[in-house]
Deep mutational scan, measured.
Amino acid sequence: RKEMTAACTPRRRIINLTSVLSLQEEINEQGHEVLREMLHNHSFVGCVNPQWALAQHQTKLYLLNTTKLSEELFYQILIYDFANFGVLRLSEPAPLFDLAMLALDSPESGWTEEDGPKEGLAEYIVEFLKKKAEMLADYFSLEIDEEGNLIGLPLLIDNYVPPLEGLPIFILRLATEVNWDEEKECFESLSKECAMFYSIRKQYISEESTLSGQQSEVPGSIPNSWKWTVEHIVYKALRSHILPPKHFTEDGNILQLANLPDLYKVFERC
């Protein structure tokens, strides 16, 4: 597991931080080997919608929660590849102030007048994250320049770009939802926020969305749709870069829909 690298990086740093090793061990302890084997050997059937997909393993048909699986995938990559990410360069710098204002204007932020003026909160978020810029760049390849612009994001899987519609809320939550006081809790909560931002979430995906850094293989055609990215990038990574937690067998994120021999018997009677 320590050699797990989802995106190509030129050289690998050895990380011996106790906090990170502890988080890696927790993933191992909570892992479910049968689910790992199923995901490793599954045959992708198709997307139901951005949140759900169908896959077959041996004779069984499964309904998989793409949102939760991708979130767990990105969390584990962030923990196992800690401080070893490439950088996704933004085509132009994104001012943190503008991103924070967009987030505060969104109902998702939960902002009320009692929280104070949005401009003041946005300025605080910019200054707060600028103070964390060195650590964010060093460990997470999340790059913020001296003017308070976001200029780079971590490359977690080759050819995958997170849904940038979720970027404003991500920046807001970096400042408000991460435990910045304790090292282990900081790395864990920061990785979880980043994983949620990178995950496939239906509120940020339309039929026209593209999450891939590449064009489709047909010359002159439109960019790959999110469905292509889910199948050929995300579920491909799920084959080798995730140890599913045991609770996925109990919380409805992986559901067995049918045993195909039983279905064949039904059709034979028709």
Rank of each mutant, 00 (worst) to 15 (best):
L63R: 03
E268W: 04
D115A: 08
E25T: 13
I233W: 02
S91D: 14
L17S: 07
H241Y: 13
R36P: 00
W228E: 07
C270E: 14
Q203R: 12
A100I: 15
I222Q: 14
E37D: 15
P261Y: 05
H40W: 06
S221D: 15
N159K: 14
G220T: 11
I157A: 03
S216Q: 13
D115Y: 06
L172I: 07
N49C: 12
E268M: 05
D105I: 06
M4C: 12
I15C: 14
P168I: 01
K60I: 12
E127S: 09
L190S: 02
P107M: 13
Q24V: 06
P244H: 01
Y62S: 00
Q51D: 09
K2E: 12
V34P: 09
S191L: 04
T112K: 15
K2S: 14
T67K: 03
H247K: 14
W226T: 01
L136N: 02
E127C: 10
L64V: 08
S43A: 13
G152S: 11
I77C: 05
S212M: 13
G148N: 14
L190E: 00
G116F: 08
I125N: 04
T210H: 06
W52E: 00
P168S: 09
H57K: 03
L136T: 03
Y204N: 04
I242Y: 04
Y235R: 00
C194R: 01
S199G: 03
L142P: 00
D105H: 09
L104Q: 03
K227N: 06
E177Q: 06
S206I: 08
C186N: 04
L96C: 09
S22D: 11
K131F: 12
Q24G: 04
Q76V: 01
P245G: 10
I125D: 01
G152C: 11
Y80L: 10
E268S: 07
R269Q: 08
L174G: 00
H241L: 06
P95T: 07
T59V: 07
E113G: 09
L61D: 03
A83N: 04
G46T: 12
A94H: 13
G46W: 14
E134S: 05
Q214H: 08
N84R: 02
E119P: 12
T210W: 07
P93F: 04
V48E: 02
M38G: 03
P245L: 03
E33M: 09
E188A: 11
F197H: 03
S225L: 08
T112Q: 14
L90I: 12
G86P: 07
L64N: 02
Q24N: 04
L21K: 15
S22L: 14
A83L: 03
K132N: 07
G252C: 11
K246M: 09
P219D: 12
I157P: 00
E231L: 02
Y80W: 14
N16H: 09
E114V: 08
E185K: 11
S199H: 00
V126E: 08
G86M: 12
A94V: 15
K68I: 09
E127P: 03
E185F: 08
P154Q: 01
D138T: 05
I222T: 10
Q51A: 09
S22C: 08
G110M: 14
E147N: 13
S19C: 05
Y198G: 02
H241N: 09
N84C: 05
P245E: 01
K130A: 13
P10E: 14
V87T: 14
Y75M: 01
A53G: 06
F85H: 06
N49W: 02
I14T: 13
V161P: 02
R269L: 05
C47H: 13
R269V: 05
K2N: 12
F85K: 01
N179I: 10
G120P: 07
V234S: 00
G110Q: 12
E143K: 13
I15W: 04
E268T: 08
Y124H: 09
L69Q: 00
K246C: 12
C186W: 03
Y160E: 00
E188M: 12
N65H: 07
I151R: 08
P245H: 03
K227H: 04
Q214L: 08
L64T: 07
C8M: 14
I15M: 07
C194A: 14
C186P: 03
G152P: 00
Y235Q: 00
Q24H: 05
A237F: 06
M196A: 08
E182Q: 14
S240P: 00
R11F: 12
E182M: 10
Q203W: 04
E72Y: 06
T9D: 07
L17M: 06
S212T: 13
K60T: 11
L99E: 04
K118Q: 12
L156A: 00
Q51R: 07
N84W: 02
Q58W: 04
S216C: 10
H247W: 10
H232W: 04
R269I: 05
T18I: 10
L104H: 03
W111I: 07
E182Y: 11
L96N: 01
G166W: 01
C194S: 05
E92R: 06
T59F: 10
S240I: 12
K132F: 03
S109P: 07
S191Q: 02
T249E: 15
L64R: 01
H232D: 03
A94P: 14
P107E: 14
R269W: 05
R269T: 11
L155W: 08
R1S: 15
E188N: 10
E182C: 14
L129W: 04
G220I: 11
F170S: 00
A6F: 04
K184L: 12
E25W: 14
F85P: 03
E250S: 11
E147I: 14
Y124P: 09
E113Q: 11
A94I: 10
H232S: 05
T67E: 09
E250P: 04
L255A: 07
E146D: 11
F140I: 05
P261F: 05
E146I: 13
N84M: 02
T67M: 04
L69N: 03
N41A: 10
I171V: 15
L142G: 01
E71L: 05
E119R: 09
L54A: 06
L35Y: 07
T229K: 05
N41V: 08
S216H: 09
I157Q: 03
S206R: 14
L69W: 05
P245Y: 01
E134A: 07
K68T: 08
L64I: 10
L142S: 03
R12Y: 13
E123K: 10
V178M: 03
T5I: 05
N84H: 03
R12C: 14
D115S: 09
I79T: 04
S240G: 11
P223A: 15
T66R: 00
S109T: 13
K60Y: 15
T18L: 08
H57C: 08
Q51P: 02
P154S: 02
K184V: 07
L172T: 08
E134R: 06
F82G: 02
D251K: 07
L153H: 02
Q214A: 11
D138M: 06
M196I: 12
L54K: 00
T229I: 10
D105Y: 07
Q58F: 05
M196G: 10
L23A: 04
P163S: 10
N224M: 14
A53N: 00
P107S: 12
E3L: 11
A6W: 07
E113L: 12
F82T: 02
W52D: 00
N84F: 02
L90G: 00
A103G: 10
C194K: 02
R173L: 02
N28M: 12
L172Y: 13
D262K: 08
I205T: 06
T229C: 06
R173G: 04
L238D: 00
A122V: 10
M38W: 03
D181G: 11
F128D: 06
K60F: 15
E134I: 09
H57P: 01
L129K: 01
K227C: 04
Q256G: 07
N224D: 11
N49Y: 02
L102A: 15
A83K: 03
P93Q: 10
A237I: 03
M135Q: 04
E29F: 12
Q30N: 15
P244E: 02
E114L: 10
H40N: 11
I157G: 00
Q256N: 06
L238W: 02
L88V: 13
L99D: 00
M196P: 03
N159E: 13
A83S: 06
E72W: 03
Y204T: 04
L39S: 04
L21N: 08
I222P: 12
Y62M: 08
A100C: 09
N28T: 09
T66H: 00
L238N: 00
D145L: 01
F267W: 10
G46V: 05
L88R: 14
L255D: 03
E127I: 11
V266S: 15
G46P: 00
M38L: 13
L35H: 06
C47D: 02
N16W: 07
Y264R: 14
V34M: 10
N253D: 13
D138S: 05
E25G: 09
E25P: 00
D145C: 08
K131L: 11
C47S: 09
I157F: 02
G148Q: 13
L99I: 10
G213P: 06
L164D: 03
A175Y: 14
D145N: 11
L156M: 05
D115P: 06
P168V: 02
H57L: 05
V161A: 13
S225H: 13
E177V: 09
